[in-house]
Design a protein around this nucleic acid. Sequence first.
DNA 1: TATGAATGAGTCTTCATTCAT
DNA 2: TATGAATGAAGACTCATTCAT
Lengths: 204, 204, 204, 204
Amino acid sequence: MKQDVEYKKRELLIEAAKEEFLEKGYNKASLRNICAKAGVTTGALYFFFKNKEDLFAEIVDGPLNGLKMLLARHFREDGEQISELDSLSNIDLDHSDESDMFIEYIYSYRDSFILLLNAAENTKYENCVDEFVEMLEMSSPMVISGMKGYTSDAYMSHWMAHLTIDAFINVIKHIEDKQEAKRKMRPILTYLVKGWVELVMVRE
Amino acid sequence: MKQDVEYKKRELLIEAAKEEFLEKGYNKASLRNICAKAGVTTGALYFFFKNKEDLFAEIVDGPLNGLKMLLARHFREDGEQISELDSLSNIDLDHSDESDMFIEYIYSYRDSFILLLNAAENTKYENCVDEFVEMLEMSSPMVISGMKGYTSDAYMSHWMAHLTIDAFINVIKHIEDKQEAKRKMRPILTYLVKGWVELVMVRE
Amino acid sequence: MKQDVEYKKRELLIEAAKEEFLEKGYNKASLRNICAKAGVTTGALYFFFKNKEDLFAEIVDGPLNGLKMLLARHFREDGEQISELDSLSNIDLDHSDESDMFIEYIYSYRDSFILLLNAAENTKYENCVDEFVEMLEMSSPMVISGMKGYTSDAYMSHWMAHLTIDAFINVIKHIEDKQEAKRKMRPILTYLVKGWVELVMVRE
Amino acid sequence: MKQDVEYKKRELLIEAAKEEFLEKGYNKASLRNICAKAGVTTGALYFFFKNKEDLFAEIVDGPLNGLKMLLARHFREDGEQISELDSLSNIDLDHSDESDMFIEYIYSYRDSFILLLNAAENTKYENCVDEFVEMLEMSSPMVISGMKGYTSDAYMSHWMAHLTIDAFINVIKHIEDKQEAKRKMRPILTYLVKGWVELVMVRE
DNA sequence: TATGAATGAGTCTTCATTCAT
DNA sequence: TATGAATGAAGACTCATTCAT
């Protein structure tokens, strides 16, 4: 009973924080406002969270790590799969399933990801996008070098990684409906895969 | 003599402001700090500039408008050129010259553009990128509808515009050397043009 | 115990504010000074009060509204009483009791009223005197038109209202002792009532 | 020629100052604004006027002193006249001519007097009204004591002086047209004179 | 758990005034 | 005469954070 109430206060704070951070960004967001919105006192906030950054982290950290793990696993499996191919023509250009999975995951925490993308300035998360770019960028040489007769162009690898991540970000930011997002993502991804093949892969 | 000194103070303020805005973003940038860095009193800043936003604008507005005008002219000319084509195969995939010109212009005010891209939150410029996306997005239907037998896919037009602008932004943000930037931009642009042709143009 | 101390700080702020506002007027009054006088930090003031105007209002609003209600009731009763008269000669020229009552009320918040009269420039209260003039001015036609054979001169009504209110204001401003104020007010009021009868009432 | 231009600047400053002081009051009036309105630089203002207070004085001091002198002369003559009376019934209740004269004078500098009445807070002129009250208050005993068998009630003398001055002030503040002002003032003055006779004069 | 009073450094901005030119 | 750059103190107000209770 008591616990319910207490738990609720924490939840209320997090919901209020989401709103405030989203509306004003990390810096301009006011803890006072958040407390007021949540109908809670300043002190209470500091019972549940260490400080402003911690409050932000609480909203954002879980989903972000989840996505990182998902991606890491994806890249691992991708590497294993491709290393079994022996011809360029056998590459699977259709990545709809993976794309759908990512969208599925991200959209179940869309609030948090929107926060990460739009309201994380002056936070340790402000460059989190770069991490994803880097993960993608790093994975491609491993994948490609697994193929006979091919090596990857470092620079193009970087830029394709950027474009790919940006494509996801654009979808996440501007399309609210999950199914719609999946649908829109697929053709874009097909185009991007062609980019990887044409620009990044170089015949030795 | 005197004039030199006076002129210098304004310049010093602008230089200090660039540094501070870049380092902390618009919001967190402190006018006190800027004045201190410039070796000037608070009042002096308010002699030269109306307020914080005006100081930021002074750094950023000129270059931004210049680019807008450059782009507007480009799109106009592009439309005229293409409308004379009568076959898809005649489309010029090489946009190196235009690309070089944009890079050339942007890099002559790179400080300002970096500020616009990284430090314009809570400024009237915070969505300036969207304007460029929109300009590009809007220009493509006009260009394509000028070609016999083709029409443009609205959604893909939007996403290609996004990717194209993002590509430029990535270069501007991460490559310091102008010539290097030009060199890197060319193949990316070629790839992007292919995207426009493949994804956006639809046979009627 | 604790409560005493906390309560005191708010009180201290209000007392310091009264002093400062009185001495310098609303505009020139400095919140810093007020806090210093009260031995409190700037933030504390903003915990208790929303802003400068709110601090002023806190001192002044209650007493002012009280007086308005008192007057409203007085005018209502006055109207009822007089409407029962049928001859000018029956008008009661002695308003000592009402006068005493108003003085009594006002002097129990004299600080606040002095503030309203001398230090409310640039405040929403700066024209509060006019409101009282208007109340008085509006009430007289109602009263007079209730009497057979008489109507009121609009212009004289306005000026008598002004003089009447001014008479009270002069007393409040310059006489510190409540009993003294009552005593001084009475003959003045008698004279003023004669003015109402002679100048404002017109035989139809 | 040159002098014309220079003279004009001073005039422009004074006109701009009148506007600004009237609109914002002495404190809130900004010298910068005044200079801007006048199309003149800050330095120029300080060539013509010593400082803010001096600028205000320049607008207000002449008319104010003129009125003081007018009043002083009036009181002197009044004293001489009345001292020749030997009966209360011979007192002239009609002061229209004097009233008209004061109104005439005041309205030829109405801007300045409005400034004195509404915008002189924190100025050495902020209590100038009191001076007039005092002049009037002081003159009446002299006048009355010149009459056989009468003496004046000090307190009532003070309050009648207040009411009389207030009556003028109300007219000046709220009636724009000079002739209208004269007309409105006359009956009020008649009433006030009766007050002086009834309340202030006491049979020995 | 939670309160809420209090901190104090910090924010942007405005101002009357000065002074070398 | 007049400029206009520069001063520097002061203005109201906000903030994340702390702590005795």
